[in-house]
């Protein structure tokens, strides 16, 4: 049984004749969280974009070793832009994100709202929410879809302590169910609710 999802092999990225990433290799493993950390501008976001296939690396490649051909369709990516529509309500945004036709979709959305304690905001337009609440809405999307991998760019930014705890326990549950997480942050995560591997990116 193969235990990794994606293998990153010798990835390098050049931008405007400046080297951003150099010879990076690691594996994303099943049921594990991976934290990419490094200084500002060290190329964390670029690396995430390479992994999800949005940016083409200058050299090296990303290999799908999970045995599931549709793996890249089962990735949820949450970047600096939250990907939510300001003119839709929280609930509408979530039902738009539902990829599969669950019969109990309303229930799933309700659960997600309850997990992040946003039930009373569900009828509000997301453009009227605060920055942190918008972030929570985009994080809620991870809860309502069947995905194999969460790719989250700085999950902890803009969140208060309570929401960080909620995110941590949701992630723990997800990892136990067999999902994987790859995220970026500014610092090494030493102790957390879930076991995290750290990978430092040097610029």
């Amino acid at each position: 049984m193969n235990n990794s999802l994606i293998e990153i092999k010798n990835v390098s990225l050049l931008r405007n004749e400046k080297s951003i990433l150099e010879n990076i290799s690691f594996k994303i493993e099943k049921s594990k969280a991976l934290n990419l950390y490094g200084l500002n501008g060290s190329g964390k976001t670029s690396l995430l974009k390479i992994i999800i296939g949005m940016t083409e690396p200058t050299s090296g490649f990303i290999e799908n070793v999970s045995g599931d051909e549709d793996l890249f369709k089962k990735i949820i990516y949450i970047g600096h832009k939250y990907g939510i529509k300001g003119n839709l309500t929280v609930e509408e945004n979530l039902s738009y994100a539902l990829t599969d036709n669950f019969e109990d979709s309303q229930l799933i959305i309700k659960e997600a709202l309850e997990t992040y304690k946003m039930t009373k905001h569900r009828g509000m337009l997301t453009k009227n929410l605060s920055h942190g609440q918008q972030k929570k809405v985009s994080l809620m999307k991870t809860l309502i879809t069947n995905s194999l991998l969460w790719v989250i760019d700085e999950p902890y930014s803009a969140l208060d302590d309570e929401s960080i705890n909620i995110f941590n326990s949701a992630t723990k549950k997800y990892l136990e169910k067999g999902g994987s997480l790859i995220m970026t942050s500014h610092k090494e995560i030493k102790e957390s609710f879930f076991t995290t591997e750290n990978y430092k990116i040097y610029s």
Binding site: M54, Y77, K81, Y82, G83, I84, K85, G86
Partner: peptide, 8 residues
């Protein structure tokens, strides 16, 4: 593009 839905 501005709100990030295009990326997803």
């Amino acid at each position: 593009y501005d709100d990030g839905t295009l990326e997803m």
